[in-house]
């Protein structure tokens, strides 16, 4: 049987969105994300909550290899969101990444266009841990001075890739980072350096 979606579709979607909005508005400041979902493995409750809250028939979704290999995941997302799945990362509005260490290079996703930088891909990553106050140094809009955040595991050459992403501003991808019970944001406007 298909795992259920949000117990309260209106308010759970709102709560999830609000956590993501706050996370992107204050990069590097993790928020609580109580999803209350039990999606089929290897989809995490946080990835599922964000997919249910933000995707629908108007948003092509790309799944990483681990998620794509599980037909129950595709069935779950299709049923609860109606979002078309795409195997072309450059066409995706959202990319769900269960295995960040094997995330494709960011340049393979859509960066938007100079006239419409909003037509870019938002990457949603499932990490093991998000720890505020240590690790990478972040500056930029939404940050009062400097903030720090430690993330694991990370895509290869993470800081270098983010620097390239930042250099292309206003084009670029945005990252929504999740860990059990938490969400943090790294929009394209954030400058990230090693501590």
């Amino acid at each position: 049987m298909l795992a259920p979606g949000f117990a309260d579709p209106v308010h759970d979607a709102q709560g999830t969105f609000r956590a993501v909005m706050d996370a992107l508005a204050r990069p590097g400041l993790p928020r609580r994300l109580e999803a209350g979902l039990e999606p089929p493995a290897p989809l995490t409750p946080e990835l599922a909550a964000i997919a249910l809250a933000l995707t629908d028939a108007d948003t092509p979704v790309w799944l990483d290899a681990g998620l794509a290999a599980a037909p129950e995941v595709a069935a779950y997302l299709r049923f609860h969101t109606g979002a078309p799945l795409t195997d072309d990362p450059a066409r995706a509005a959202f990319a769900l990444i269960r295995d960040p260490a094997r995330c494709p290079p960011f340049v393979r996703f859509a960066p938007g266009t100079p006239a419409y930088p909003d037509t870019s891909t938002t990457l949603v990553l499932a990490l093991d841990t998000i720890t505020a106050g240590e690790g990478l140094r972040l500056t930029g809009p939404g940050i009062d001075g400097t903030t720090r955040i430690a993330l694991a595991p990370l895509p290869e050459r993470f800081v270098g890739q983010l620097a390239e992403n930042r250099a292309g501003f206003p084009l670029g991808i945005d990252l929504i980072l999740t860990a059990p019970g938490r969400v943090a944001g790294l929009p394209r406007s954030t400058a990230v350096t090693e501590s």
Binding site: A25, L54, T59, Y116, D118, P187
Partner: peptide, 28 residues
Amino acid sequence: FAYLDEGTKRMIRRAILKAIAVPGYQVP
């Protein structure tokens, strides 16, 4: 709740997230 249907809210929410990521840019 809050008048708009959930599909419309999702569309607006996505636009808000892009707007936050690109400060000052007008998202259609």
